[in-house]
Design a protein around this nucleic acid. Structure first.
Length: 238
DNA sequence: TTGTGTTTTATTGCCTCC
DNA sequence: GGAGGCAATAAAACACAA
């Protein structure tokens, strides 16, 4: 390349080794740090343009009293340092974005849990109003699901049971219950429960790769249907 | 003073572009 | 095929604690 060969010859005699002038002159192979002025000038030039055209390289080298090769090497190393710093900056930025997303997710998740609890409590309250205490105490004691509970509500309870016993995400809602017919995105066998609307949470957070029924709710006569007559949208509670 | 970690300068080898 | 860029690496220079 353009580098002038400045390799130091082997010293043949001790005299040569100790000859001050000779040593100083022929030692450039030994690394010399650039002066602060040289570095400052190179930095300024780098700020303007981090790539070096041959003409600029020659000019800079002449101006700073360096070999063009040294200038080229300095730019090379400077680009490498810049790249490293840039990677660190990118990493920090991504990390803070990620942290912020996690925080958002956590607060939304809490809000979601709160709303779920609210829905369940309202459902229980409604159930209690429909079936006042004492109406069928014995039955309630032995079976938490009243026989006259609408099919949708019964299924809801089964689903809750499935969740509470820590199912591993099997596609079967209940061993004795209806097998799931839908091989698509939802596990809900809607053909078995034509009067129900299902709110499905696609990701239950358990990483089991499946969906489960958050809520299964009966639909009133004011329900909305799509063109095929299937119930759509959220339920309207009676 | 010395051992050790970091920074800076320089080399090597490979790759791409003209 | 030569020039120049980059990644990996070596080695000198430097900083700093013990």
């Amino acid at each position: 390349m353009e580098e002038i060969s400045r390799r130091r010859p082997f010293f043949s005699t001790a005299e040569e080794l100790y000859e001050e002038e000779y040593y100083d002159e022929l030692l450039p192979e030994k690394k010399r740090r650039l002066t602060p002025e040289q570095v400052h000038s190179l930095e300024k030039s780098f700020e303007i343009e981090n790539k070096l055209e041959p003409e600029r390289k020659t000019q800079l080298a002449k101006k700073l009293g360096l070999q063009p090769r040294q200038v080229a090497v300095w730019f090379q190393n400077r680009r490498a340092r810049w790249k490293t710093k840039q990677l660190e900056r990118d990493y920090d930025q991504l990390k803070s974005s990620y942290d912020s997303l996690v925080s958002d997710y956590e607060s939304i998740s809490k809000e979601n849990d709160k709303l779920k609890a609210e829905v369940l409590s309202l459902m229980e309250k409604m159930n209690a109003e429909e079936h006042p205490a004492g109406e069928s105490q014995a039955q309630h004691a032995s079976n938490p699901v009243p026989t006259d509970t609408p099919p949708c509500l019964q299924l809801t309870m089964k689903v809750e049971d499935r969740q509470s016993i820590g199912s591993d995400g099997s596609a079967v809602v209940d061993d004795d219950g209806p097998q799931l017919l839908d091989s698509g995105d939802s596990y809900f066998p809607s053909s078995h429960y034509p009067d129900c609307v299902v709110a499905v949470d696609e990701d239950d957070g358990s990483d089991n790769g499946g969906s489960y029924f958050e809520y299964v709710l009966p639909v009133t006569e004011q329900q909305h249907h799509d063109d095929d007559g299937e119930p759509i949208g959220w339920f309207i509670w009676p």
